[in-house]
């Protein structure tokens, strides 16, 4: 399995990379860790004429706090996210999600930006990014554009990113007091991709009522999405087990689940409800200061 021939560029700066993608448009593919692009190129499902390796642009690898938000550089690896002390304290949902991706070797190479730009329907981060109300920052030679996570995923392997843009960072708002989040997934045993994955973020108000809730679902449909019907059912109500189970049944409302050799559409629908309920239960327990 050898990729088709291509011309290779290894820019040292973001400006240089932006010039290259501006010049080559959609004939160029960006290479970060290569764990989405290279498998496609080896199968010749992708045969770009130009490959722009942004893996050497060190400034894109940081994870930092900036203006009350957490900023994750596109080149942060899944291992960087999993091991980040800052994220463990400020946004434990992301390390929990990163730890569920593939295996050690994959987590050492795969990047946040690569995963989000590729937008595999069964990738893990999309669920978390949606539940966190994150922002995706796209940079082009004409400036930067901020895309809310809820609008970012458009279709199968398709996002709001345009040719000539590079996903440079992800911004995560700080979560307030009495909030908790969790990611739960049913993984395909060989690839570890999500057959159904759910990330939930919950803020509890007085009397343990659900003040706000966000649920991101991955692995189920052509793209990751927010389960708004389930969210609406939960807001303002006390988190009782029966209510959580009923809301979780709604996470595939209006969705046409994928069916393939790994799981039928009906199975994915059932699994999504189970894992959404577990994610909600864990998020609520954590919001109440309990371990889950």
């Amino acid at each position: 399995m050898i990729p088709a021939a291509f011309e290779y560029f290894a820019p040292k700066s973001l400006d240089e990379a932006l010039r290259l993608v501006a010049r080559h448009g959609d004939e160029a593919k960006l290479l970060a860790g290569g764990h989405s692009l290279l498998p496609l190129m080896k199968l010749r499902l992708s045969a770009p004429r130009y490959v722009v390796d942004i893996g050497r642009i060190r400034s894109l690898r940081s994870i930092r706090e900036e203006g009350g938000r957490i900023v994750i550089g596109a080149l942060a690896t899944h291992h960087d996210v999993e091991a980040s002390e800052l994220l463990r304290i400020t946004c434990p949902l992301l390390p929990e999600t990163a730890a569920e991706i593939g295996d050690v070797q994959v987590r050492n190479r795969g990047t946040v930006g690569g995963s989000l730009a590729h937008a595999d329907p069964a990738a893990d981060y999309p669920a978390a990014i949606l539940a966190l109300d994150a922002e995706i920052v796209a940079t082009s030679s004409s400036g930067t554009r901020v895309i809310p996570a809820a609008e970012y995923f458009v279709d199968l392997l398709t996002t709001q990113l345009r040719p000539g843009e590079i996903l440079t960072e992800v911004r995560i708002p700080r979560t307030g007091e009495n909030s908790g989040a969790a990611y739960r997934k049913l993984h395909q045993p060989a690839s570890h991709f999500a057959l159904a994955g759910a990330a939930a973020r919950v803020t509890l108000g007085p009397g343990e009522k659900i003040e706000s809730v966000a649920i991101g679902i991955t692995g189920v449909a052509v793209n990751a999405y927010r389960a708004t019907a389930a969210e609406q059912m939960l807001i303002g109500k006390k988190a009782a087990p029966k209510l959580l189970a009923e809301a979780a049944e709604k996470v595939t409302d209006g969705i046409d689940p994928l069916g393939d050799i790994h799981a039928s559409a009906a199975y994915r629908r059932a699994a999504a409800a189970v894992y959404a309920r577990r994610a909600l239960e864990a998020a609520i327990a954590r919001a109440g200061g309990k371990k889950a």
């Binding site: 290894a10 290479l31 290569g34 290279l38 498998p39 390796d53 893996g55 994959v106 050492n108 190479r109």
Partner: peptide, 10 residues
């Protein structure tokens, strides 16, 4: 890392 999923140039 898995050396089948990395280019030598990387």
């Amino acid at each position: 890392v898995k050396s089948c999923t990395m280019l030598a140039v990387q």
